[in-house]
Amino acid sequence: MSEPVSALGGVTWADGIAQIAEIGPQGMITLRGDFDDPEFRVAVKNAVGLDMPGQRAVQMSGENTLCWMSPDELLVLCPYGDVAAMLAALTSALAGHHALAVNVSDARAVFRVTGPYAREIMAKLTPADLAPDAFKTGMFRRTRMAQVPAAFFLRETDSFEIVCFRSVAQYMFDLLKTAAQPGSEVGYF
């Protein structure tokens, strides 16, 4: 096996008003199917160990996270080394169903923004409503950050996790650093 390499090699930055880190390699599986099909729900539950998330929500437990991407798409976050086994379980459980499970671990990049100003940094970059009562832990949002598509959720208070395409990882890192530059606190939230 070749050594997995994340987009920016796990770069971190802590010179501003929040800690920014590229985390990875991160296992990621795109899963599409009929959410109303009980067998699909059972297959997901058995393979990932998590219940189906509600609309624009995530289910988190241990090292696995299940994200609601659209009415027929989920994103599984799991340890990089678990992908092959999980994919095999999903593929066999979903045989004969109109469903799809694909390893996208190396097609994406994942960042974490942590600190009391994390919410503010995110709000500078996305049109999504990030007011504390509008976006809470456990919610998931696909949107854009400046000029690129991105998805994010609050893993815990003051800790956002961001998923974007690998090809724009450097752009995303630079964007987050700019939004978190020293002295850039707005203090809105």
Partner: peptide, 11 residues
């Protein structure tokens, strides 16, 4: 109507 978001034009 699919994800229930009030999306601004830039999305």
């Amino acid at each position: 109507p699919y994800c229930g978001v009030d999306a601004d034009e830039t999305e």
